[in-house]
Design a protein around this nucleic acid. Structure first.
Lengths: 165, 165
DNA sequence: TATTGTTATACTCTATAACTATA
DNA sequence: TATAGTTATAGAGTATAACAATA
């Protein structure tokens, strides 16, 4: 048995309980490992005074110029209100600039500043190093297998929201 | 128009931008998938008015009686202050009880109430169903492979902190 | 003095919804 | 009316540190 819940109150408790059933779930192991990678990454990134959400936003802007807050919010799975604050932070750090679209002045066009482009390689290095270090224990085949399994799950469940936590 | 954003005014847009390097990282895929599993689980659990942290605490108490707040905090990777609030919530829901240890009255012994033991199977079902549904796309061998890869990483990095987010 | 658990405070992140300005 | 972005408010979650009771 796995749950003492199955023993009625007042019953004698088994000498040694079975391990918690948490570990029976793949989702548990996924979260356990994922949290550690993300935690380490977030901590290192924080030394540069950058949050993970900010880093993702910078990355998206670097990958394709001319994003708008609304599109960025959709990509990152955040509300417009939330993205607005992320952009405020980036703005105050002089890492992005916002300019009204000439076609529709309600719309803002986002772009990275020169400063952001200068620190981007450094931030990318942090991400690369973190990933390399964490998965160094796996061989090339294992890494490929893990990647394929995760991509398969992402594909099946149509997950597109970029993780920012 | 959807978004003039796609073409920055005046700028020649590259024929096709390279994909964001985010996807190059295994940690990215891990987080992407893990977030989805956890999000779905947390949402279903929330319908029972239980947070993930509360669920983990209930599980730990079910697995081995006689835990104390301090030990639970260590297991869950939280501070004593944070665990105190989790226990307050569980207490207010009549799911746990706290009683002073006869050996050291500073110490509290935690135990589940009958009510908690009654709903535990239901909560476990939620976790089981969530896991089963999410990983149904994988065959038995794939699940085993994924589990082994994750356990290997957890072992190498000595990850023990139970994820509660 | 040290330890257990609690509490006060603050901070981060996020969502909801009201608000403005454009369209 | 509808949309883009901002802001006000609130809530969850957590950390830090001060605190009371006990050892």
């Amino acid at each position: 048995m796995e749950l003492s819940a199955e023993s009625p109150p007042g019953a004698r408790r088994p000498a040694r309980q079975a391990a918690s059933p948490l570990e029976a779930h793949l989702g548990y192991w996924l979260r356990l490992v994922s949290n550690e990678v993300s935690r380490a990454f977030a901590r290192t990134l924080q030394k540069q005074n950058i949050s993970v959400a900010e880093w993702v936003a910078i990355n998206q802007l670097a990958a394709g110029a001319g994003l708008t807050p609304a599109r960025l919010a959709a990509t990152m799975g955040m509300t417009r209100g939330a993205i607005s604050k992320v952009l405020d932070k980036l703005d105050s750090k002089r890492l992005i600039s916002r300019s009204p679209s000439p076609l529709d002045s309600r719309v803002q066009l986002l772009s990275l500043t020169g400063q952001a482009r200068r620190i981007l390689p450094q931030l990318t290095s942090i991400a690369d190093d973190n990933d390399r270090h964490f998965f160094a224990a796996l061989g090339a085949n294992e890494k490929a297998a893990l990647r394929n399994l995760l991509r398969k799950l992402a594909g099946v469940h149509q997950i597109t929201r970029i993780p920012v936590e």
